[in-house]
Amino acid sequence: MQLSKKMRITEAKEYVADKLHVTPLDLSDPTMMRQLREELDIGVITGVPGIAKGLAAKARIAELLDIKINCVEQFKRKTGFVAGPKAAGD
């Protein structure tokens, strides 16, 4: 949110917390966020088979937060999952 929307930290936390239906304080609670991340299937830091990883996790995060993530958009264009100009190098 800081990079793509230039949000200051308080606004960024409130935006993400609102989208995830938690409080800003919850975002830095590793116990709560570990469970929530697994539940939402947006990637966890430990190795768990079947949980979304890498690009798949980012695609889900982009949808949850209602933002565009550059590499996710590139992937969609490369694979033709959405209409749009092909990425460079295709």
Binding site: S4, N70, C71
Partner: peptide, 8 residues
């Protein structure tokens, strides 16, 4: 790097 999908 924009073409490679970098975030910034």
């Amino acid at each position: 790097m924009l073409e490679m999908g970098a975030d910034g």
